[in-house]
Design a protein around this nucleic acid. Structure first.
Lengths: 223, 223
DNA sequence: ACCTGAACACCGTTCAAGT
DNA sequence: ACCTGAACACCGTTCAAGT
């Protein structure tokens, strides 16, 4: 019976294994996301990072989709408060642009947000902010309720489209397909030419948001 | 040297292995999609179906994303032609509703369409149809070009949201979160209550499409 | 050129068994 | 209740070797 053997390796190499908690798991997931992207935020990789087996995580997180949703709500906390200056339209556009910009840095997260919507505190704050701005603009509540969904969906989908999977080659392929179209079978596409794909992402987003807001304002909910 | 041995098993069990072609591969992928869903349309499963190894498919298809895009273009062929009756607005809404309805049956395909846009013949036809209807409505070409993108993105994202991954439980969770919100911290959410989540999918889609069209009509592209 | 077997480097999730 | 090792049932993609 050897008493007090050398401190075991595990004790030396890392600072005492912390107890598992949901917050700890989500924080570790955010760290991996920042360092290596969402495709590395897997149950196995995360377990490795937390010095445990993947099965242990299922005590705190139902599945991978729920984990990703929690990560998104966490990042939503970095978006910042509603701007104080400008018309309600300008402020609305700015809030949504900030939200989109955050997702642009993690397009794969945007992809998963489309199916597993976050329902955390930061997401609720964002919804409240958007509703307040639409209310300030005199948009009727029923339209505002559906409009918030439309605005957030557009922002999320736009970011998702810029996912790494959408490689530059694919874009070139679409570009050349559109350019080589016959004006007998597809006269309008031929006439528009590059206009279909023109514009910087910022300009297109800004235009789309203004179009959405204009449509939301003017379209009554009839039911 | 045995001449003409018994027909080998492989000859007996299936009708002569057909040569691999891109069309054959895509057709087999569509069959698997219909029977078992997109999550089973994998390189390995598809190879098994075609009685070969997964490596063989890479001669005809760059990767899984490209395969899924080809499958989507194939399904787009089932959407049917533009309706002949009604105002341009009504016809536009009907074309987009038909497109969305098709994707509703394969929401996971909608998910992948958001990142890997198809560029096949059926997709081009759809774009041409939408541009023609917007032109008929007198929408300026620059707005129409960007507007088509907005309309298709909305339809695709809406279908993607109804992905199987978005379980009923998650919806209930969001519903109860929204209902239990404090009216001190989130007065507008509290005031709206169930209005945020109200409405049948068809009613919401119809409203959204009308709002989008109204916005596209009225919002000039300034550059 | 086309096709293939085998390998590399991973996944999510479950379950029986331990503490 | 919480945690775990091990297993089950898969993935995409590459590459050297064959035809």
């Amino acid at each position: 019976m050897t008493e007090r053997p050398d401190t075991p390796r595990s004790r030396r190499e890392r600072p005492a294994k912390p107890a598992l908690t949901r917050e700890g798991i989500v924080a570790a997931a955010v760290a991996i996301l920042r360092a290596e992207g969402l495709q590395k935020v897997t149950m196995r990789r995360l377990a490795q990072e937390l010095d445990t087996g993947p099965a242990s995580l299922y005590v705190y997180v139902r599945n991978t989709a729920e984990l990703h949703a929690a990560v998104l709500d966490e990042l939503l906390g970095t978006v910042g408060p509603a701007p104080a200056e400008g018309s309600w339209r300008e402020r609305l556009e700015r809030v949504l642009t900030a939200y989109t910009a955050m997702l642009f840095e993690h397009p794969s997260l945007a992809r998963s947000a489309l199916t597993a919507r976050p329902s955390g505190p930061h997401y609720l704050n964002l919804i409240e902010t958007l509703l307040a701005l639409l209310d300030e603009g005199g948009v009727p509540p029923a339209q505002a309720a559906w409009g918030v969904d439309l605005l957030l969906q557009h922002a999320t989908a736009t970011a998702a489209e810029h996912s790494a999977e959408a490689s530059e080659e694919d874009w070139d392929a679409l570009r050349s397909t559109l350019r080589s179209v016959s004006d007998r079978t597809h006269p309008r596409i031929a006439a528009l030419g590059d206009a279909l794909l023109s514009g910087a992402p910022e300009a297109r987003l800004s235009w789309a948001l203004r179009a959405l807001i204009a449509g939301i304002e003017r379209t009554a909910v009839t039911d």
